[in-house]
C-alpha cells in the first residue's frame, strides 16, 4: 500500500458455491485508489463489479486476499468491527434508492448519524446542509414516496456523505435514472468530491458515469484488465 492510497486491494479472490460447482466471481484483483479520487469499476454485467464493491465495503467476505481502507485492513476485522467501520468510514449509494420509507428526507440523511449517536441539532443541521447541496432544499420533510426517483437518489447521496466518510461506494447509482437526472446526480457527486474531498468509487457500465470518472478500473470475468 502506498503512502497516499486510501484504498488498497491486494490479490482478492471471491468464490461462490453454486449447484454447478464453485464459481470464481473475482479472481485475484489488486488495485489502489488515491484519496479524493472519482473512480469507477467498469465492465459488463456479471464481470464481478458488485461483488468486488461489496467486498471493499465489508458487506461480503473474501475467499482470499486483503483489503485496506484508510490504513485499516477490513478483511482482518471481526463482523462487529466491520459494522462499526462501515458506520463511520464508508458511505453507500445503491442501485435501487433504498431509503427507509417511514423516515422523511432529512431523517433518511440523518439515519447514519443517528446510529453514530450525534445529537439532533448536529444531525438536522448536517442533513439540511447536504440536502441543500444536492438541490433538495424545501423537500426535507417529504417522505421517499413523495419524491421522484432522481430526488430519492440524491437523498441517498446526501445520506452516504452525512457521516463524512473516507470512501463512498456507489453501486450502479444511475441505473434507474433518466439522462437528465443522471447528469444532475453526477454533477452533484463530482461537486461534493471536489468540495468535501470525499473519495468516490462507482461500479457501473453506464457510459455517462464512465465519461465523468477520473480513474477507471476495467473488470472482465472477475479479472482486472490493464
Amino acid at each position: 500500500m502506498t503512502n497516499q492510497a486510501l484504498l488498497s486491494v491486494q490479490n482478492v479472490v471471491k468464490t461462490y458455491e453454486s449447484t454447478a460447482g464453485p464459481v470464481q466471481a473475482v479472481c485475484g484483483v489488486s488495485l489502489e485508489l488515491q484519496r479524493g479520487a472519482f473512480a469507477a469499476l467498469v465492465g459488463p454485467s456479471g464481470c464481478g463489479k458488485t461483488t468486488l464493491l461489496n467486498a471493499i465495503g465489508g458487506l461480503d467476505s473474501v475467499t482470499s486476499g486483503r483489503i485496506w481502507i484508510d490504513g485499516t485492513e477490513i478483511t482482518g476485522l471481526s463482523d462487529r468491527k466491520v459494522i462499526e467501520f462501515r458506520l463511520h468510514r464508508i458511505g453507500f449509494v445503491f442501485q435501487a434508492f433504498n431509503l427507509v420509507p417511514v423516515l422523511n428526507a432529512w431523517e433518511n440523511v440523518a439515519f447514519v448519524m443517528e446510529l453514530q449517536g450525534l445529537g439532533i441539532k448536529a444531525r438536522r443541521d448536517r442533513a439540511y446542509e447536504l440536502l441543500s447541496a444536492v438541490g433538495l432544499s424545501g423537500k426535507e420533510i417529504q417522505r421517499p414516496a413523495q419524491l421522484s426517483g432522481g430526488q430519492q437518489q440524491r437523498v441517498a447521496v446526501a445520506r452516504a456523505l452525512a457521516s463524512r466518510p473516507s470512501l463512498v461506494l456507489a453501486d450502479e447509482p444511475t441505473a434507474n435514472l433518466d439522462s437528465k437526472s443522471t447528469d444532475k446526480l453526477l454533477d452533484i457527486m463530482h461537486e461534493l468530491n471536489q468540495k468535501e474531498g470525499t473519495t468516490f468509487l462507482f461500479s457501473t457500465h453506464d457510459p455517462r458515469v464512465i465519461n465523468r470518472a477520473e480513474v477507471l478500473f476495467q473488470l472482465e470475468d472477475g479479472r482486472l484488465q490493464a
Binding site: V100, P101, V102, L103, F111, E114, L115, Q116, G117, L118, G119
Partner: peptide, 23 residues
C-alpha cells in the same frame, strides 16, 4: 459517546417501530 450512541439508537428503533405500524 457510546452511551450516547446507544440512547440515540434506541430512540431511532422506537421511532421506526412506531412509524412502521402506520406503513
Amino acid at each position: 459517546s457510546k452511551l450516547f450512541a446507544r440512547q440515540s439508537e434506541l430512540g431511532l428503533a422506537a421511532r421506526l417501530a412506531f412509524r412502521n405500524l402506520g406503513r
